[in-house]
Amino acid sequence: MIEIEGVSFSHGRAPILSDISLTIPAGGVTALVGPNGAGKSTLLALMARLLPLQAGSIAIAGRSVAATPGREMARTVAILRQDPGVSSRLRVRELVGFGRFPHSRGRLTAEDERLVDEALERFDLTGLAHRFADTLSGGQRQRAMIAMAYCQGCQTMLLDEPLNNLDMFYARDLMRTLRMVADSQNKTIVVVLHDINHAAAHADRIVALRDGRLVVNDVTARVLTPETLQAIFGYRMEVATVGGLPVVLHHR
């Protein structure tokens, strides 16, 4: 469970987040959506302790983000940032192996090796395991970074626009993998998404921000109405049902 209580954040005098309070229940996929500049990445960065809290508090699985030692947090929550831009020449297997660092402190046990293999398999990286990460395409590198975060084995995962750089095949593949991981391992996954239809298809909940304020935090079906979507994105869009699934016609 993620508890966010009265969080505000400003950059100089420009307010980015204003008094956000919300609770994300344990287990399941939550999509964090909103227009550009809504504060999604900032909120995620605060949850991930990449930015210092200026006001309010955030707790993940009962641990205060501000007060818990970094090592312990690294075993609680795994993060993937937008455009991680790996410039290091690490082999994919080494990179994914560093996901085990919070547990093994650099000495991989047989169990760690098994988890690395499983992560490589799960994100379709086995064939690339011995390639240097800087020789991969953007999408392959993105998958390697996600595999590393997955390999960290945390109950909570925070992913900032993980679909960046991914083609349709791997975007769908990643969302299905996240869905499966959330279901089979009861993980809490928060993912910043730009494509509302990925949220519609794979997320249990949608948290929407606009101009630094919380617009809605509810189960997916209740968010996907023309009225609510207009409140989030600022224009009216139709919601159709195709094959039993809500589809937002946001591009028309």
Binding site: L50, G70, E72, I79, R81, F98
Partner: peptide, 19 residues
């Protein structure tokens, strides 16, 4: 050595891995 390697992945990856 391992922490330095993680450092080469950047500040955010380091924080994420508890370094």
């Amino acid at each position: 050595a391992d922490r330095l390697t993680i450092m080469s992945l950047g500040r955010e990856a380091s924080v994420g891995l508890g370094v």
